[in-house]
Structure formats: structure tokens, C-alpha cells
Amino acid sequence: MEGFNEFAFVLGGVNHWITIFLIMAGFYIIVSRSNMIKKLVGLSIFQTSVYLLYVSPGKIIGGTAPIIVEGNPEQLYSNPLPHVLILTAIVVGVATLALGLALVVRINEAYGSIEEDEIYGEDWD
């Protein structure tokens, strides 16, 4: 267990840093790309980064999944509450993704393009 503390010092923040990197990457894709499907993929990355943001503080080292084993009262369990919140968020996420894709398909039928720049150009002409 001696190496454990050094590891915790170096890696204690890695989950946060990667989460922040994913947030930045998703945000960058949404703002910089004009292709709408790419934007939706960026939005999904943004969304999954929130799963990490919620689930990683709930993890307890030495703990296990929050399914109670009877006859072992000393067992540590990770926090179940973030899991519940994220579980519903995932399914709602795919429902909103489907709605966004439906909008993209309709836009493509109306304008013949899924590039934001071309659609703006067409509207201003």
C-alpha cells in the first residue's frame, strides 16, 4: 500500500483532467464545425463527458458495485446516486440525438445540404 499514496497524488486528478479535455473537445467540435452531423457527434462527446464528471466522484477505492451482498457488513460500496442520474441521462440522450438527426434529415431535404455555411448562404441570396 506504500505505492498507493503516490499513485493517488499523481492520478487523483486524471479523471477530472480527461473529463475537462472531453468537454473542451465536444465544445470545440460544436462551435468550429459547420457540418451538422459532426456537430451532433460533438454534442454526444460533450454529453458523455458529463457521465464521467458525475460517476468518477462516486467511485470509492476498494469499494464495489452498489449491489448489496448479505452477510458482509464491512464491504464498501460506491455511491449509487450518480449511477441512477446518469442511467436515465443516457437513454434521454439517445432520444434527443434521434430528434436532432430527424431535424438534420429534414433540413437536408429542404436545402440539399447539411453544411451550416451553405444553408446560411442560400437563405441570404
Binding site: A65, I67, L87, T88, I90, V91
Partner: peptide, 12 residues
């Protein structure tokens, strides 16, 4: 009720 799973996962 006893292991990982539930309506959301099974539905998908």
C-alpha cells in the same frame, strides 16, 4: 432487482 439491469437496459 438482484443484479445489474432494469427496464432501460432491457428495452434497448
Amino acid at each position: 432487482d438482484f443484479g445489474p439491469g432494469g427496464g432501460f437496459q432491457a428495452g434497448v
